[in-house]
């Protein structure tokens, strides 16, 4: 079964933000708030649409706003994938 990893999420969000350098800050700090990692609500909205497209997971805006860190978002997506 397909699952999402922290580095896959970071790759998506890097692309959303238009950054060319890659880092592994999600794995180093999986519980850091998205804002502290440089991602605002627009970046999260775009991440939501990429996740819908690439993983077939349709997160509600409410669910999305409840996920405040990379780990929480990855867990949310993976719970959805496991239940599907």
């Amino acid at each position: 079964m397909k699952q999402m990893t922290l580095s896959a999420l970071e790759q998506i969000m890097h692309t959303c933000a238009g950054e060319d350098e890659s880092t592994d800050s999600f794995q180093q700090a999986p519980e850091r708030a998205f804002a502290d990692l440089g991602y605002d609500s627009l970046a999260l909205l775009e991440t939501q649409s990429v996740i819908r497209r690439e993983y077939g997971v349709d997160l509600s805006e409410q669910a999305l706003s409840a996920a405040e860190t990379p780990q929480q978002l990855v867990d949310l997506v993976n719970r959805w994938l496991s239940a599907a």
Binding site: A35, D36, D40
Partner: peptide, 15 residues
């Protein structure tokens, strides 16, 4: 707020 510092966190120098 923290809108501008959130953007600044994307700078390579801050990363």
């Amino acid at each position: 707020g923290n809108g501008l510092t959130t953007l600044a966190r994307r700078l390579p120098q801050v990363r």
